[in-house]
């Protein structure tokens, strides 16, 4: 591979490092200041791991540790529940879409599935607010802002992404193996268990992982649909930063970053292990 010579190559390198700088210099500053001894503000007073220890303090005695634990649990419950529901619904939807629908129906299905992938998240949030406003009039206290409304909202935008991934895999698999299984008198269920599902499994897992990442990454939709008792991590960081810069927020952010980096490394290891 030859990507040009001399100055051209140097120029791309400089530009690339500028780009990586835009991504990482702020994050490195956060990591650095998470070791500051001062509770708030940006004056460097000394190195300590105090804020990391305090995050893990006894929730009975430390109000902040209790808050953080509650917020972390909320985030994981939201991510987990919405991932499970959207993976099931999205996979079924993808499986159902390959049936021989009239072309108008299948075009309609395709555009419905495309909406969440292209719609701006703030209009998506506005639509969900409308939904809960209307539904609240029909069934009373089910749709009060809180964990339920947040899970519903996250499922609604995650379904489409799961469907898109599973569907593209289904198209890639094609009908030949299923036809072979049927020719060998496999029952529909057996054929699904032994042929379709194993072939589809990587796409289902991939879709679920994407759904979980999307859920963790979402702020706007959570912001619109959350209630006072269903604060998730992004909401917590947002609310706290309004009250000024606090060192323990840096520690939380750093931990999250390390968590993301670690899970990407682990995923890469796992997939490489599969290949071998």
């Amino acid at each position: 591979m030859s990507s040009g010579r001399g100055p051209w190559r140097a120029l791309t390198t400089v530009a690339a490092f500028f780009g990586f700088g835009l991504l990482y210099v702020p994050l490195l500053a956060v990591a650095m200041y998470s070791f500051n001894t001062a509770e708030r503000g940006l004056i460097w007073t000394g190195f300590s791991v105090r804020w990391y220890i305090e995050l893990l303090a006894d929730p009975e005695t430390s109000r902040r540790a209790r808050e953080i634990r509650e917020v972390a649990v909320n985030t994981l419950v939201l991510g987990g529940a919405s991932t499970v529901i959207s993976t099931v619904l999205g996979t079924l939807l993808a499986l159902g879409m390959r049936f021989p629908w009239p072309s108008s129906v299948s075009r309609l299905l395709e555009s419905i599935v495309d909406i969440p992938a292209v719609a701006p998240d703030i209009t998506f949030a506005a639509v969900l607010v409308m939904a809960f406003n209307v539904l609240r009039r029909v069934v009373d206290h089910w749709f009060e802002p809180g964990m339920t409304t947040m899970i519903i909202s996250h499922v609604t935008f995650e379904i489409a992404f799961v469907t898109l991934i599973v569907r593209s895999r289904l198209v890639a698999i094609g009908p030949t193996l299923s036809e072979a299984a049927m020719d060998l008198y496999a029952s529909p269920w057996r054929h699904f268990r032994r042929v379709t599902l194993p072939l589809l499994w990587p796409a289902i897992v991939g879709g679920a992982m994407l759904a979980f990442t999307l859920s963790l990454n979402d702020f706007v939709i959570s912001f619109f649909t959350s209630g006072p008792r269903s604060v998730t991590l992004p909401l917590y960081v947002y609310q706290s930063q309004m009250r000024g810069v606090r060192t323990d927020l840096f520690a939380i952010s750093t931990l999250l970053l390390i968590g993301v980096a670690a899970s990407i490394m682990i995923l890469e290891r796992l997939t490489r292990w599969r290949h071998n």
């Binding site: 990454n217 992004p234 970053l257």
Partner: peptide, 30 residues
Amino acid sequence: FFWLALVIVPLCTNLVIRTFSWKLLLSAQL
């Protein structure tokens, strides 16, 4: 893989946290 992972880590990190990190970087003391 290493450089691509460096791009994907911010992609998987919440926007609130990344914006918060800019707020820190652009503070008067830095």
